[in-house]
Design a protein around this nucleic acid. Structure first.
Lengths: 234, 234
DNA sequence: TAAAATATAATTGTCGACAATTTATCTTGA
DNA sequence: TCAAGATAAATTGTCGACAATTATATTTTA
């Protein structure tokens, strides 16, 4: 199959499995953002030793889902507006470049595969209904595959193996399924077209605008919220 | 003092200290790139238990200096041309954006500090002699401080705490102190000027060109090498 | 009463040993 | 002689216990 992540290998060790479980728990908010992590408690809950738990915690730290301080302990990272905006800025830089590289390095087969995927999404009932499926699963999937298309292992590692868990966490915790679905679909189509035309410069530009649009969408919401708050005070 | 990395805290635990020692050993090539790491052997050499060694190894993995495979072990990452070029691409994306953010977020004091730093470098005897000091220490320092100037913790973490160890490794192993010193100084000056003018777009453009120039420099060298090799075969 | 100092409890860091898996060596058979 | 399989050695993963540090509760003192 095309555009699979080669660096992602099946979880064989128990530390791996616990890592995946904890990852889901954090992303979906079952472990509250910002909350303290008790090693003895978690180890008991998952019925493993503290050593293997710490191994799992190290992996969580690698993808920025927890933070550790020496002799003090770990906390689940917290979800702040500032953090979300910083994440968007970072994505704009990395995914923009990944998209440019994809226009250079993707094979014709991979491009055809992407076009097929989009066509399937276009016919998807969920999209026509404006339901959240496309926005949630499909969007992540689209971005994920473009990044893999860069054929740049460094970029793939940084984004797919590290940042994207945080991205999903913010999506879950902030309940982001805005009504940008159909618009996002159009933007995705244009991006693939630029890649198909092997126009790296345009591909990067479109991807950056696409991500920046989401960021500005959030910024506007925040601004409105603040304005409403202020008028309430008076 | 201005533009210090807040996330970098002193090494308190022994795992921290061993991590720093191993980091230096890898960056400077005392531990050969691509070589296998024997946990029992290293633990004995540093006179620590395997547990704390593994803690140190986890940190090395976080900054991409070693790679681990389950049930097999760790290897020092190897330095390949492809890896170096991928690193440049990634830096172009991240540092370009960091530079744009720096133009937005740096304080006037921080900008003045950078200008002072450059002025000091300008008067530096080493630079006038075209010696490597500026290229090695000064260049890393300049880029480092611009990134800190972005005031974006996500970018700072990714670049300063992760990528830059790899950057230094490649510099050491490939012995990179090309005669771009005076030219690099001019480019740095222009970047600071754009930041001073609060021109984020130009700042990003200049930083990307600055990094791309280094990459193309390498690519040219490689091309020449390959050509020479080919003519030798005939 | 409030603040500082002390004592206690809990948590994290480190250690050595055992289990599971992989790698190397040796044996066997065609 | 070479390949395949079995055996032995070495390496990594996991465990429970102890040491060092931090957080909490208690006592003391102004």
């Amino acid at each position: 199959m095309f555009l699979q992540n080669p660096s992602k290998q099946a979880a064989v060790t128990t530390a791996d499995k616990v890592f995946e479980q904890l990852q889901h728990a954090i992303v979906e908010g079952d472990m509250a953002a910002g909350s303290k992590i008790s090693e003895p408690e978690l180890a008991k809950r998952y019925e493993i030793s503290r050593s293997t738990l710490r191994e799992a915690l190290n992996r969580l730290e690698k993808c920025h889902l927890i933070e550790r301080k020496a002799n003090v302990g770990s906390r689940v990272v917290d979800c702040t507006i500032e953090g979300l905006l910083e994440l968007y800025i970072t994505r704009e830089a990395l995914e923009g470049m990944a998209c440019r590289q994809a226009a250079i390095n993707m094979t014709d087969e991979e491009i055809a595969y992407m076009q097929n995927m989009l066509a399937k999404h276009a016919g998807d009932k969920a999209l026509q209904d404006g339901v959240s499926y496309y926005q949630e699963e499909g969007d992540v999937d689209f971005h994920y595959k473009v990044i893999l298309g860069s054929h740049n292992q460094q970029l793939i590692n940084l984004i797919c193996d590290q940042l994207y868990h945080l991205v999903r966490m913010y999506r879950c915790q902030f309940g982001m399924h805005s009504p940008r679905a159909t618009r996002a679909f159009t933007e995705h189509s244009n991006i693939i077209q630029a890649i198909c035309d092997r126009d790296g410069e345009l591909a990067e530009l479109l991807m950056r605008r696409h991500i920046a649009a989401s960021r500005k969408n959030i910024e506007n919401k925040i601004a409105l919220q603040k304005a409403a708050q202020k008028s309430e005070e008076h």
